[in-house]
Amino acid sequence: MFVRTDEKLTTTQAIVIVSNFMLGSGILTLPRTLAEEMKTPDGWITVVLGGLIIMLVGICIVKLCQQFPGETFFQFGKKIVGSWIGHLLGILMVLYFMCLSAFEIRVMAEVTMLYLLEGTPLWAIIMFFMWIGLYLASGGINPIARLFEIILPITFVVFIFSMALSYKIFDIDNLRPVLGDGILPVIRGLKSTILVYAGYEVMLIVTAKMQQPKDGVKAMVIGTGIPIFLYIVTIIMVIGAMSIDGVVRSTWPTLDLMRSFEIAGLLFERFEFFLLVIWIMQIFSTFSICHYTASLGLSQIMNKKIKPIMYLLLPIIFLVAMLPKNVNELFEFGDFIGNISIYLVGLVSIILLLMSKVFKKGAVEQNE
């Protein structure tokens, strides 16, 4: 199978790639993570602030990429900081995407084994999804984008419908008082939101593949806005229905919310199955684009064909995914990835943007 790397993405496809990348495993665990960190029901404020910060960082990434039309981060990095440091940053970015893909595929396997395929070996579930992801990524970024265009609208409709059905057990008092403990818990919870917004960094390669790179900021803003909205709905409905204490005691609070009520008289009385299936598709989407991005980066650094590298990275990602011994270690691994995202992607991208402006690297931006 020949991997096409010259196809261009529409602005809509760029938007759905960013949104699907962000809507991974975080939505299943975010309420518990914020509840443990903040001890207050103000997580929705943290989600808004964290989303806006990520949006600004994402815009900086787009502006950086627009300085080097048609080139990804792995190609133009060395033009800013030199060949040696540029290749080092590229390799670190490849490792980051590999770790993120391993984390997502492991979370998907854990959830699948717990709720759908009880008793199935973890390694079997991971290998099955990885081979499907390899088949998708082998076609290039356009088949990935076309699949995302199908998955995202379905996810949005099913998720909002499922959350709306929980209104009978929703209690607004569980969200009060607003800022009862001040602003410090909100600030303390910002760090916990970084991992759930992992995905903005995909613009490091998507901008180069857009038909209209000048629409990169638009794609970033809208692509980030959709997850922000869904995460706000998640936090409000889950904490409002289960309370802070109930959320802290749950490993997968969003799924447990769906299991905590029944709607009599409908064709289906339990709805966690639909949400679970849709979110497995979302996590699979995140894994696929991570695997593709890591493979593309390594192929451009080494100046080799991408398809053999996809096969090469597959067993490495599998081994990394199997490293955590339990769910707690898996969540610690996720926190580690979130910390790496702050410094390697966010901070480095801003520094590179400033350097490209100061030293006048790349193309001169045209007035829009």
Rank of each mutant, 00 (worst) to 15 (best):
G24I: 01
G26A: 13
G26Q: 10
L30F: 08
R32P: 03
T33M: 11
T33R: 04
M38C: 06
M38S: 02
K39I: 14
P41I: 02
D42M: 03
G43D: 03
G43Q: 06
L49V: 01
L49F: 09
G50D: 03
L52E: 03
I53S: 08
I53F: 11
M55R: 13
C60S: 12
C60N: 03
I61G: 06
I61P: 00
V62I: 12
V62F: 07
K63H: 10
C65I: 04
Q67Y: 10
F68Q: 01
T72K: 01
Q75C: 04
F76D: 09
G77W: 05
G77Y: 06
K78S: 15
I80K: 02
V81Q: 00
G82E: 03
S83P: 12
S83V: 02
W84F: 13
I85V: 15
I85F: 15
L95F: 10
M98Y: 03
M98F: 02
S101N: 12
F103M: 13
F103T: 11
E104R: 01
R106G: 13
M108V: 05
M108C: 07
M113C: 14
M113F: 02
L116M: 15
L117A: 14
E118H: 13
I125D: 07
I126G: 05
I126K: 06
M127S: 13
